[in-house]
């Protein structure tokens, strides 16, 4: 199912304005430029990781609110300027990389990336897919073990991003890529 509420019950709840506002403020910091307060994608990911299993209900709500809003935003990504889209791709890929979503929601996240990679080479969403994939490529082999039949590598043009393609092909065989490729 493509409907988020069907795959992610926690995303279904109603969030108070305070939770919405707090979630908004963190996203704001990702896209801000100094002298406004900023946070890096990695800092936000670390915070989300803490909030996910927090004993404080408000923090778990902020986590669910942020993730839900990000997923719901997917359909608007083609309207983003390049810089903001790249930041968003790093955040989206980082969420997959860090295992912040699991099961059906993870399946949906991966499908969004796959869908982006099916867009024409050079299109905005294609680059979104590549940038997101670049973040979680180190985890690819885990997913390919569980997710037979979806061939990410086939979606990537032969004439571009050959390193990422090779990386995934090693992952499909549950092998580590050569050390020289790590960079």
């Amino acid at each position: 199912p493509s409907d988020l509420s069907q795959v992610w019950p926690e995303a279904n709840q109603h969030f108070s304005k305070e939770i919405d506002d707090e979630a908004n403020s963190y996203f704001q910091r990702i896209y801000n430029h100094p002298p406004h307060p900023t946070m890096s994608v990695d800092e936000v990911l670390e915070m989300l990781q803490r909030f996910k299993d927090s004993t404080i209900k408000r923090e778990r709500e902020v986590f669910n609110c942020m993730l839900r809003n990000l997923f719901e935003e997917y359909r608007f990504f083609p309207q983003y300027p390049d810089k903001e889209l790249h930041i968003t791709a790093c955040l989206f890929g980082g969420i997959i990389e860090k295992g912040l979503v699991t099961y059906m929601a993870l399946g949906l996240a991966l499908r969004y990336v796959l869908e982006a990679l099916r867009k024409p080479f050079g299109s905005k969403m294609y680059y979104f897919g590549i940038a997101a994939l670049d973040r979680f490529k180190n985890r690819e082999s885990d997913y390919n073990k569980a997710k037979k039949g979806v061939d990410l590598a086939d979606q990537i043009s032969y004439y571009s991003f050959s390193n990422i393609k090779m990386y995934i092909e090693y992952g499909q065989q549950s092998r580590d890529p050569p050390v020289k490729m790590q960079g």
């Binding site: 509420s5 109603h14 996203f27 809003n69 719901e72 608007f76 309207q79 903001e84």
Partner: peptide
């Protein structure tokens, strides 16, 4: 359930180009 409210920051980003 109704669709979630789009956060203001996202509205701002997608119209800024």
């Amino acid at each position: 359930p109704s669709a979630p409210r789009r956060l203001p920051i996202f509205n701002r980003i997608s119209v800024s180009e």
